[in-house]
Amino acid sequence: MNILLNNCAVIISGNSWQPGIGDPTILGWLTVFSYFLTAFCYFKCGHKNRRDSWIWWVTGLFLLLLGINKQLDLQSLFTVIAKNIAIEQNWYEQRRSVQKNFIIGLITIVFASFMFFIQGMGRKVKQFILPLFGVVFLLTFIIIRAASFHHVDQLLGWQLAGFRLNWLLELGGISCVAIAAIKQICKTRR
């Protein structure tokens, strides 16, 4: 039995996952291209800016991984694994409280990582405010997607002028991060 998960063509047969293209639409591929292009820009900035290179490289790696995940849809694999564990261990009926605790844990880890990242930046936080805003935007989007509650999935599928809210949120976050890299590249060329 094949199902459509979050309007994406990921194949889930029964309680198993098979790799497929997570979002085979034009905007899905545009999003992947945007992740990869922005990651490339960040790697280029990391190469050119020796003092701040770790900030550029870490953010570039984060974007590269998000681009890969966009089409592999690895969170669906995680969901299937968690569902199978819940069924085997007889706590599937209580999954909502486990999901809630998982999201709280994820938010805590993201917040702690973000604070560690900001602390490592020191006084450069102001210089990197736009990419930080974009990363926070993307992390918020990821946490919302990870919640995978039915009403959240319905919200992300909502359309505005023919564009799913899902695409607008993700591409908006990528855009903030990309603008910062493009500005830095232009600055170093002068």
Rank of each mutant, 00 (worst) to 15 (best):
I3A: 02
I26K: 07
T31W: 08
Q154Y: 15
L63H: 04
V32Q: 13
F102C: 05
D23V: 01
Q94I: 10
Y92M: 13
K126C: 09
H47Y: 15
Q71H: 07
T188D: 14
G162M: 05
M121P: 06
Q89P: 09
Y92F: 15
L5W: 06
I185R: 08
A178S: 14
L37P: 06
D23Q: 05
F141A: 12
L160T: 08
F149A: 09
A181K: 08
Y42C: 08
S16R: 06
F141S: 06
M121G: 04
S34L: 12
S13L: 10
G162H: 10
N101T: 01
L169W: 11
I12M: 05
G173R: 09
L4K: 10
G162R: 05
S13N: 10
I12H: 00
Q94C: 06
V32I: 06
G67P: 14
L74H: 03
G173H: 12
K83V: 08
Q75A: 04
V177W: 07
G172Y: 11
A86N: 10
Q184W: 13
P131C: 08
A39I: 01
G60F: 09
I3G: 01
L160A: 07
F149D: 09
W56A: 09
I144E: 03
M115C: 04
L171D: 11
A82G: 08
L106M: 10
V152D: 01
G122A: 11
N101A: 01
G14Y: 14
E88C: 05
V32R: 08
W57L: 05
I142E: 08
F36E: 01
A180R: 11
G172I: 11
L66F: 08
F78T: 05
A161R: 06
W17K: 00
Q89N: 12
S113D: 07
I143R: 00
N49P: 02
T59E: 03
Q154E: 15
R51Q: 13
W57D: 06
L37E: 07
T108M: 03
F149N: 07
H151N: 15
N49T: 12
I129K: 06
G67M: 03
N166K: 12
A181V: 10
L30M: 06
